[in-house]
C-alpha cells in the first residue's frame, strides 16, 4: 500500500512520456488520415457525375440496399472472407509451429521457400496464376495426367471455379506472409515452457492447442483482423485475374469475382465517376470490418 505514494509520483511524468512516444505518429496521422476521412464522410452525402455534384444527405446510404450490384459484391466478398481466411490462418499457424521445432532439418530453406510467394508483386503472381489455371494450362495438365479428373476443370471460365481459383491464389500468396508473424512471435516464447509441458507428458498436438495458440493469441487476433481488412478491401487479385485487355466486361465470369473494393474502384474510375456514392460504399466496408473486428476481439477475449 505504501507503493501507491511512489507510483503516483511516477505516473504524471510517465504519462507525459506516453504522449511523447506517440506524438510523431499522431501528428502525421491527424493531418494525413483524419482530414481525408472527414472530407470523404462529407462526400458520402453527395451524388456526383465527376465534378457535377448534388447534395443527397443519407440518400446514398438508402440506395445501397436497392443496388443489386452492391449486394452481389457484398455476397462475393463475405464468401471469400468466410472460406479463405480461416484456411489460410490455420495453415500458417501449423507451418510456423513446425518451423519453430529445432529438430526439423532445413528449416531455413523451408522458411524462405514458404515466404517466397509473399514477395512477388501482386501483378506478377496473378499473371502466373492466370496462365497456370487456364483450360489447357499446367494445373489441368497435371490433374489429367494423374487421373484425378477426367475432363479439364474450367477454372477461370465458370463462376464457381473462378471463386475457387481466387481462393487458391490468395492462400498461396498470403499464407507465408502470415506465417512470418507467427514465427516472429514464437521466438518470443521461452522454450522452457515447452520443455516443462513435455515433462508433464503433453504431446505435440496438445502443446499446439494448449500452449502455442493461447500464447500467440494477440498475434492471431492481429492477423485475423488484418486478413479481415485485407479481404474486405480485396482488390488487386480479382482485378488482375479477370482483366481481359481492352474489353473485359465483368470481374470474373458473371461478376463472380466482383468484390466491394473493386466496386468502389469501378464507381470512381471505370463507370461514370460518382465519388459520393463510392465514398458511401467505402463506409459500408468500414462498418462491416468494424463489426467483424469487434466480434473477433470478443471471441479472442483480448482486452483492448
Amino acid at each position: 500500500m505504501t507503493e501507491k505514494g511512489i507510483s503516483r509520483s511516477f505516473i504524471k511524468p510517465r504519462d507525459k512520456y506516453g504522449w511523447l512516444f506517440i506524438s510523431l505518429a499522431l501528428i502525421l496521422l491527424g493531418v494525413l488520415l483524419f482530414y481525408p476521412i472527414v472530407y470523404s464522410l462529407y462526400l458520402s452525402t453527395m451524388s456526383s457525375k465527376g465534378i457535377v455534384q448534388k447534395f443527397v444527405g443519407f440518400g446514398n446510404y438508402v440506395k445501397l440496399f436497392q443496388d443489386s450490384m452492391f449486394i452481389l459484391a457484398l455476397k462475393n466478398t463475405l464468401t471469400f472472407f468466410l472460406i479463405q481466411v480461416p484456411i489460410m490462418l490455420f495453415l500458417a499457424l501449423i507451418l510456423a509451429t513446425i518451423l519453430n521445432d529445432k529438430t526439423i532439418k532445413y528449416r531455413g530453406l523451408f522458411r524462405t521457400a514458404f515466404f517466397l510467394p509473399a514477395v512477388t508483386s501482386l501483378i506478377a503472381y496473378t499473371i502466373l496464376f492466370k496462365m497456370m489455371f487456364s483450360l489447357d494450362g499446367f494445373i489441368n495438365g497435371v490433374l489429367l495426367n494423374v487421373h484425378i479428373i477426367n475432363s479439364p476443370i474450367p477454372w477461370l471460365l465458370d463462376p464457381f471455379w473462378a471463386k475457387v481459383t481466387l481462393i487458391i491464389g490468395l492462400t498461396w500468396r498470403w499464407t507465408g506472409y502470415n506465417m512470418i508473424f507467427y514465427l516472429s512471435a514464437l521466438q518470443n516464447i521461452p522454450e522452457e515452457i515447452y520443455e516443462a509441458a513435455k515433462i508433464d507428458g503433453a504431446n505435440k498436438v496438445k502443446q499446439f492447442f494448449y500452449i502455442t495458440i493461447p500464447l500467440l493469441k494477440p498475434l492471431i487476433l492481429f492477423t485475423a483482423i488484418m486478413s479481415t481488412i485485407g479481404t474486405l478491401q480485396l482488390f488487386d487479385e480479382p482485378m488482375n485475374l479477370s482483366q481481359g485487355g481492352v474489353t473485359s466486361a465483368t470481374i470474373g465470369p458473371g461478376n463472380s469475382l466482383l468484390t466491394l473494393s473493386v466496386y468502389v474502384y469501378n464507381l470512381c474510375f471505370k463507370y461514370m465517376p460518382n465519388f459520393g456514392y463510392a465514398a458511401t460504399v467505402s463506409y459500408a466496408i468500414v462498418l462491416i470490418v468494424a463489426l467483424l473486428s469487434i466480434i473477433q476481439f470478443k471471441l479472442m477475449g483480448d482486452k483492448k
Binding site: 492466370k130 474450367p154 481492352v246 473485359s248
Partner: peptide
Amino acid sequence: KTSGWSEW
C-alpha cells in the same frame, strides 16, 4: 474458351 487477354 479463353480467359483474359494473354490467353486470348
